[in-house]
Simulated scan of single mutants.
Amino acid sequence: MIDTLNKFDIDLFLWLNGRYMPWLDPIMIWITERNSWFPLYALLIGWLIYQYRKKAVGFLLTMIAAVALGDQLASSVIKPLVHRLRPCHELALQKLIHPVLECGGQYGFVSSHASTTFALATSVWLLLGKQHAWLKWGFLWAAIVSYSRIYVAAHYPLDVLAGTGIGVLSAMLCVLVFRKLQERIRHHKIA
């Protein structure tokens, strides 16, 4: 079962990574670089402060906690436990892949990019999606960033899929804790 799943994952990776186009390489490099998104994060922070004033602090702390939890679970817990090499470190794949960047760390399961972007998109959506339906586009952004990791040969599809799950679960947990704390604070103010 695991061998079949691994073969499917490798075959899907090779198919997806093989769909590269030279003109798309610099775009995917820009998308996959973490620093490219600092202006978006600054806009999000500014919008939250403008829109919600003091309430923005709780939202921001929850989002930061979700991203940090997703990142630490992916990078500090799962990758060292699983030890699955990135496709760009697999000698058997070297002649078959289209690497666009330096390979990065040795292990790739799970994708920290997928974990952190989906943690942010999910926490923003869970906290504010009812009031601002346009925030659903955050999931498209997270999916594009996650796909870029396959494009640049840093991750297999299952690395990305598992990272997505870790990010979503991290956000759900942090938003749940935030809401419980809000309830507790409201209850103490009433009492």
Rank of each mutant, 00 (worst) to 15 (best):
I78C: 03
F139I: 01
A119T: 05
E90A: 15
V175A: 09
A65N: 04
V57M: 09
I29L: 10
L85D: 12
G18S: 02
R179M: 06
G108K: 11
P26F: 01
V145K: 03
H89I: 06
L161D: 04
D159C: 11
L48W: 11
N6I: 13
L48Y: 12
I144H: 05
L169Y: 01
I31F: 00
L173N: 01
S112N: 15
A171M: 08
S146C: 03
S36W: 02
K95Y: 08
S111W: 09
G18N: 08
Y50Q: 07
R186F: 04
E90M: 15
E33I: 00
M28N: 14
Y147I: 02
K180C: 10
W125R: 04
D71C: 10
L173Q: 04
A65V: 11
Q182L: 11
I31D: 05
V67W: 07
H98F: 14
H83F: 03
R149K: 06
V145L: 02
P26H: 05
L120N: 03
A171T: 04
P39S: 08
R34K: 15
I2Q: 09
K130P: 11
K130I: 00
Q106T: 13
G58A: 10
G167Q: 02
K55P: 00
H187V: 08
A171H: 01
I144V: 15
G46K: 12
G105C: 01
F139R: 01
H188N: 11
T32K: 00
R86P: 11
G163E: 14
L91K: 14
T116P: 00
L140S: 04
Y50C: 00
S76N: 15
I150S: 07
G58F: 04
I144Q: 11
E183F: 08
K55Q: 09
M63C: 15
M28T: 14
T32R: 04
L16W: 04
V82A: 10
L126T: 09
K79W: 04
G104M: 06
L85P: 06
S75R: 03
T32E: 02
V152K: 03
K189W: 00
T117N: 13
P80R: 09
V175C: 09
